[in-house]
Amino acid sequence: MPRKPSTRLMRSHAFYAAALSLASASPLHAAKPVASTVPSFTTEQAQHGADLYRTACAMCHGADLSGNFQTPSLKGRLVASWAGTPLSRLTGYIQRAMPLMAPGTLSTEDATALVAFLLRENGAAPGKSPLPTVEKRQASLKFPALAVGPDTPSSK
């Protein structure tokens, strides 16, 4: 059976090529499980987050969350960076790192309110139940894939 090894080799080459083409077709952002359900937060939480944002965040990230050349935008790319990540990590990051000039000054409730605000600003609708502040419960919720959809005829 002299041909068998080369057949095997060809098969493995074909498999490798398929794997490569799959890899190159995937987006730059490494694949991760993306949640489709939007965690529930309340209008009040998002509004509290908006108030905090104005005083603690807008100076660098901008009133419209668009950031600038040095400071990241909190829309759009934020979804790509955080989709599928447990919300507890986003809350933890905000508490640990932000505001940059005074990290560690936001309470868990405040950081959670900012997460609710970020969800709202990226297109999520408020719900009836509040976003939990307990880390373990937040860890079971994922930042949702909040994709921008096609424009409606009236908005064109």
Binding site: L28, H29, A30, K32, S81, W82, T85, R89, L90, Y93
Partner: peptide, 14 residues
Amino acid sequence: VVIREFHDPSELTS
């Protein structure tokens, strides 16, 4: 180059 943001050291295991 892979454009990716990490949020926790445990994500390196992927």
